[in-house]
Amino acid sequence: MTSQTTPAPIIQMQSIEKHFGSVIALAGVSVDVYPGECHCLLGDNGAGKSTFIKTMSGVHKPTKGEILFEGEEMHFDDPRDAITAGIATVYQDLAMIPLMSVARNFFMGNEPTKKIAGMTFFDRKVADEVTMREMKQMGINLRGPDQAVGTLSGGERQTVAIARAVHFGAKVLILDEPTSALGVRQTANVLATIDKVRKQGIAVVFITHNVRHAMAVGDRFTVLNRGKTLGTAKRGEIGPEELQDLMAGGQELVALEGSLGGTV
């Protein structure tokens, strides 16, 4: 495992708490992520997965707890700070803007510029070239850089978003349920992309509630339940059934599984 060869974690979330008014969304969650590993964050709906990764990516500020990035304590005021530090997030529905071209989406918020007569312009030529090259590397052949994202499939959109994050120097890539709305083949493509990214030494935080997807690419697994961590397990130390039980809080699912004939 890559995490053993590079022992220093790139990001450490220490006893993170997040309260929204009287609701305690996170009650002390600690997770370490190492470069080059795919860290799966599992949990049922309402477990606090989204709140947790939004804290990691600078959308929310933790009520209590510390975020150490490359060993130093960080305070992110907004997502831009986190992106600058090297933490990129790909959100499930919000990865891309369908009305805009792939090239415009790819460089959204990070547009390359050139100067003409002292004025700054968007360098479309560079944007188009880089987009085509990066897309080809990820195995997506575009009709042209001006093709609208709306014409791509869901899996391709996720892949474009991942390629974008990697291109802009992400050290930690957070993927928020990238496979939950996808078909089988598209899911396989996205999982393959995750593997490519991990091999480049980037830490991947993969949020999902699908144990099979997690088992396919994950190096380590952390299960969240009702705002708390139920521990982290390495690949091979835990089986899919056990993960499934942990996610749903154990006993309830055992009872349910009985009534459904073990199909959950």
Binding site: V59, P79, R80, I83, T89, Y91, L94, A95, M96, I97, P98, L99, M100, R104, F107, M108, G109, N110, E111, T113, T120, F121, F122, R124
Partner: peptide, 22 residues
């Protein structure tokens, strides 16, 4: 032709997605 123009498209296309990329 400008960076700001791309932001105009992005803000109208999906404000939240645009915010997440800064």
């Amino acid at each position: 032709k400008t960076k700001f123009g791309n932001w105009i498209f992005a803000s109208g296309g999906d404000a939240q997605a645009a915010r997440y990329v800064g």
